[in-house]
Design a protein around this nucleic acid. Structure first.
Lengths: 136, 136
DNA sequence: AGCGAGTTGCGAGTTATTCGCAGTTACTAT
DNA sequence: ATAGTAACTGCGAATAACTCGCAACTCGCT
């Protein structure tokens, strides 16, 4: 039978901690390691922060989650299947908005054609000033 | 007489440390705080890292330097007058390439028109894979 | 020359992440 | 089922990159 768990298919062992980290990332959308740990603790209070970090890295290696740099320093994690948007970070109010990746299609093509650079627009946020902060 | 130093014009006191930090940023192009400190120590060995951090922040507040996020976490500083390019960071080899800001002109316009978002393309790097790493 | 706010150096404190290691556990092969 | 073993976890210590408080100093004004 083909009933293998998705983690098994990636050659990973299925532990409660690992499953919880993955489902926390999926339910949170955007999340820092700290936020993931907090979420996981709702059902598994003893989880160690190191374990969260290690599992985020492991899950990233097999392509189930990805991270994005939103600024300041810390990375935020996303489920791989949700990463269909880019992030607009407002330097004034700190809000994080979304835009579809299609908005950058032309930009990506220019970089590919002129520089041979294959761009992943979701990995880094786009910095600027949001509509609310531009207006008085 | 108009012979005021550029730091005086910004309302800052002119200290050797501050001048050295500014000229280090200018001569280095891209630089982390650590690299700036190292450069400054060539001529002023006793400078404290805190002083470098504080001066980078101060110079940034008055608009003489800017910082960009190239990934990993640390910011890199630039002289304000040199910031006429965006940064292409390769996730495979780690190299940082440049592209003129005009390459993003269309992208910036799309975000402005559709989302009212005023983009600063130089503040965050653009992530992807460089030409050398795309090819076998 | 002298005053006062702005700066500096220093060391301690924070925050975020990584590492080593010993004990435990999930899967594999009997 | 059961035992073996490599992967995984928890924990505490270590590291890295800043940030902060405070006393001493100095730049620029008068």
């Amino acid at each position: 039978m083909a009933g293998k768990h998705e983690l098994h298919e990636k050659g990973l062992r299925l532990t409660p901690q690992r499953e919880l980290v993955l489902s926390a990332v999926r339910s949170l959308g955007h999340a820092t390691p700290e936020e993931v740990a907090e979420k996981v603790r709702e059902t598994h209070p003893g989880i160690n922060l190191s374990t969260v970090y290690r599992n985020l890295e492991t899950l990233q290696n097999v392509g189930l989650v990805l991270h994005t740099h939103l600024g300041h320093g810390g990375a935020t994690y996303h489920a791989a299947e949700e990463l269909t948007h880019l992030h607009l970070v407002c330097g004034t109010c700190g809000s994080v908005g979304d835009a579809p990746i299609e908005a950058a299609a032309n930009f990506v093509n220019v970089l590919a054609d002129d520089y041979g650079f294959k761009t992943d627009v979701t990995h880094f946020a786009v910095y600027g000033t949001c509509a609310a902060c531009v207006k008085p």
